[in-house]
């Protein structure tokens, strides 16, 4: 289990920074800086620019994403914003609007 879990009932308005893994099940409005793995689960809402290590999304992100590793948009994910990452997968059933920059 990840060291940090922002539960489904929780809303954070502001800036979240984490050195360790983060699982988002609730809502974050503001900024999310993760140094390690970030998982945005189904039902989660992130209205924030996100920096992260590996990022897995099954929920909703509105904001720009900058991962220094890979980004996986799973079925059910909804992402509006630009993605900068070394690798990206967009699963069948994921919704995505924005640009992809793979830093080549």
């Amino acid at each position: 289990m990840a060291s940090t879990v922002i539960g489904a009932g929780i809303t954070i308005e502001g800036e979240v920074s984490s050195e360790d893994d983060v699982v988002v099940q609730g809502t974050i409005r503001g900024k999310l800086h993760g140094k390690d793995r970030v998982t945005v689960e189904q039902g989660a809402v992130v209205e924030a620019d996100v920096t992260s290590g590996p990022l897995t999304v099954a929920g909703t992100i509105t904001g720009n994403i900058h991962s220094h590793d890979r980004v996986d948009l799973q079925a059910g994910a909804k992402v509006v914003g630009n993605v900068k990452a070394t690798r990206i997968t967009i699963a069948d059933g994921a919704q995505f609007k924005g640009n992809v920059d793979m830093d080549v």
Binding site: T4, I10, E13, G14, V16, S18, G30
Partner: peptide
């Protein structure tokens, strides 16, 4: 390792 600057509610 987490720092939050802002409101946490819920």
């Amino acid at each position: 390792g987490v720092t939050v600057r802002g409101r946490l509610t819920g």
